[in-house]
Design a protein around this nucleic acid. Structure first.
Length: 474
DNA sequence: TGAAATGTTGGGGCG
DNA sequence: ACGCCCCAACATTTC
């Protein structure tokens, strides 16, 4: 049998990889290939931290392949050119890859398919992102019915997952480039690679002390490690979405208490939100440019550059917002509750176009994926599918008091607030002047004064979004 | 996966 | 004992 090409894109794993299995079933060897696409790697949205995470993932994948007798072939250039060239060089009978609903990926794959036999398999989602539609064939635009349809199908189980191939035939004499950034130290909070992804999934879902049992409540606490922290790994397919869903279903079956069951259910729902947004992007690619809800395309954004800079740099004067933005920039990850708070603040307090925030998150998040990121921003802005109603405005002080009650999160990321008493931590400007002096934390000198008054901003936004909105008041 | 405004209820202080 | 007021606690409505 002639060889095949396993074209790796965002499926950096050997376990439960449908594309790899298909490539192996149709030829030998299955030659693992990654194409460095300059269009992607130099795009403003690419984001250096995420690119470094990708390169680390390629290094880990190459090591795993070598452990099984193969190796990763790296090429650089236009994917259509490079994949076609590889097919010609190797005499491969076909190319196998994981389908991706992102419009750029679909257009790219169409160009490749025009030149060589390309087989696309599912895997970005646990269920095919084009497979769950309403009875009349239309796409779901509301989460709850979508999730009901998703759960009505046979649920994924651990036994359904494809094993990693034990041995792989070596690709002989195929030249390739060195993996960029190889040897660089992995970024501390998120070491790339399939092994780490599996370790995290196991830690989160297995055993008496697994965080999944507390997830329903703890996931909202920014000061606790209550979430799986798997998102960067899911983003690059270092673990399959199906493996994550199967682990959730398995946990659901083994939950010891009602609370534990709720935890597993809620985590499964979060995974289904991810599936939902991949599906929305597939059916409605225009959401990348404009509001899903046509009636909300004329919001009078203020787009003040100085306020945007303060938000980006974590100096809005609102402790929770500033802590979260610094966590993002310093680690490439942000707690989900904090994403909602910071997004609500940008859009509904500062009245800055949600696309500005979307772009900033794309540049900094290791897990940034066009579907989830766009879905989250349109949700918060109240303009998307099944979005939060426009009048739902997060109060950053109350959110801080509820979900960072001891202030551990804020104090970790905003150390200049260390001496502020807990009572005032989430609203330090309310400290009486003598107390500010006592704790040597003067608002406006040692910490920024709030760049906006939340109550006034809320009123302004209700007006800007409201049914008879006019030009912005200021 | 909100929060503020408004309404209702009931206990307690007080004349 | 009674009515009145205040206000906290909770519920409902509204944005």
């Amino acid at each position: 049998m002639p060889p095949t090409i396993w074209w790796v894109r965002r499926d950096l794993r050997l376990h439960d990889n449908i594309a790899l299995h298909a490539a192996l079933a149709h030829g030998e060897p299955a030659i693992p290939v990654f194409v460095l696409d300059p269009t992607l790697l130099t795009a403003p949205d690419a984001g250096a931290p995420r690119v470094a995470f990708l390169f680390g993932g390629l290094t880990a994948l190459d090591a795993d392949l070598r452990g099984r007798g193969s190796r990763l072939i790296v090429r650089q250039g236009d994917p259509a050119e490079e994949v076609a060239r590889l097919v010609a060089e190797t005499g491969a009978s076909g190319v196998f890859a994981e389908a991706d609903p992102w419009p750029y990926a679909r257009e790219r794959d169409a160009r490749v398919a025009a030149r060589v036999p390309l087989t696309l398999t599912q895997g970005v989602t646990a269920r095919p992102y084009d497979g769950i539609v309403k009875a009349d064939g239309a796409a779901y635009t509301v989460f709850t019915p979508f999730s009901r349809a998703w759960k009505a199908l046979p649920l994924p189980r651990p036994a359904d997952l494809l094993p990693a191939p034990e041995r792989l035939a070596a690709p002989s004499d195929v030249p390739g480039l060195p993996i960029p950034g190889a040897g660089a130290l992995p970024s501390a909070p998120f070491p790339p690679g399939e092994r780490e992804a599996q370790r995290r999934l196991r830690l989160f879902t297995r055993g008496q002390d697994a965080a999944i049992w507390q997830y329903d409540i703890a996931r909202n606490r920014m000061d606790l490690p209550g979430t799986s922290q798997l998102s960067p790994y899911l983003r690059f397919g270092m673990i399959s979405a199906r493996a994550a869903a199967a682990a959730a279903v398995d946990a659901l079956a083994h939950a010891a208490t009602a609370e534990a069951k709720k935890g597993a259910e809620t985590w499964l729902n979060e995974l289904i939100w991810r599936e939902f947004y991949q599906t929305v992007l597939y059916h409605h690619p225009a959401v990348l440019d404009q509001e899903f809800q046509a009636g909300l395309r004329g919001i009078p954004w203020r787009n003040d550059p100085a306020e945007f800079a303060a938000w980006c740099e974590g100096r809005t004067g609102y402790p929770v917002v500033d802590a979260a933005m610094r966590q993002l920039v310093q680690t490439g990850w942000m707690h989900n509750r904090a994403r909602m708070i910071t997004a609500s603040f940008l859009v509904k307090d500062l009245l800055i176009d949600w696309r500005w925030g979307e772009r900033f998150f794309m540049r900094h998040l290791l897990d940034a994926d066009p579907a989830s990121n766009n879905g989250g921003w349109q949700w918060t802005a109240g303009v998307g599918t099944d979005a939060a109603p426009y009048f739902r405005v997060f109060n950053p002080v109350l959110q801080g008091e509820k979900f960072d009650p001891d202030g551990l999160y804020v104090r970790e990321w905003v150390p200049e607030l260390a001496r502020v008493p807990q009572k005032y931590l989430h609203a330090p400007w309310a400290m009486p002047a003598d107390l500010q002096r006592t704790v040597q934390t003067i608002v406006g000198r040692d910490i920024p004064a709030p760049i906006i008054d939340h109550a006034q901003a809320r009123e302004r936004t209700l007006h800007a979004y409201g049914p008879n909105r006019l030009a912005p008041p200021h």
